[in-house]
């Protein structure tokens, strides 16, 4: 079993990995039940699905995590609509870490691409790492 990712594990400038997936009908149905008012263009997924893809990639790539991490800040730019059924690859890179007021801040950059490598979204997330 892999060792838990701790604050000391992070190396700024290092790729943490990439994850590829398609938002399936089950996830999309659950989204529509939670946010029934959220409609997108006919052939595209709702904008917020980019956040879901980012979080799912984070869950798969940065594992195992210590319990109790806290999401402190999020930047996200939508570069193109994500098509229904599109395979999306998200890469996450550590771009910084800082100990501040006894809290461990980890800065992650993400970049997602879709069919034929077309850019879909870029983002930055700041996580207060638990251990």
């Amino acid at each position: 079993m892999a060792a838990v990712l701790t604050f000391d594990s992070f190396q700024p400038g290092a790729s943490m990995g990439r994850a590829t997936e398609v938002i399936d009908a089950e996830v999309l149905d659950a989204w529509r039940q939670l946010y029934p008012w959220d409609a997108a263009a006919a052939d595209a997924l709702p904008s917020g699905i980019a956040t879901v893809l980012l979080m799912r990639a984070y869950m798969r790539i940065l594992t195992p995590r210590p319990p109790g991490n806290i999401h402190a800040r999020q930047r996200l730019e939508l570069l193109a609509p994500i098509a229904s059924g599109e395979e999306v690859t998200t890469e996450i890179e550590c771009v910084g870490k800082e100990l501040k007021r006894e809290r461990r801040y980890v800065e992650l950059a993400c970049r997602a691409s879709g069919k034929a490598g077309r850019p879909l979204f870029d983002g930055r997330m700041t996580i207060i790492w638990a251990a």
């Binding site: 904008s47 999020q74 730019e77």
Partner: peptide
């Protein structure tokens, strides 16, 4: 992000989903 998604939805509800191309959000929880 459960609540953050509401901002995307607020933007889309106001300007339409087509306006989301190139849109960016920078927020603090």
């Amino acid at each position: 992000t459960l609540s953050l998604n509401l901002i995307w939805q607020s933007l889309a509800a106001t300007f339409g989903s087509q306006a989301m191309r190139g849109a960016a959000i920078d927020v603090r929880f």
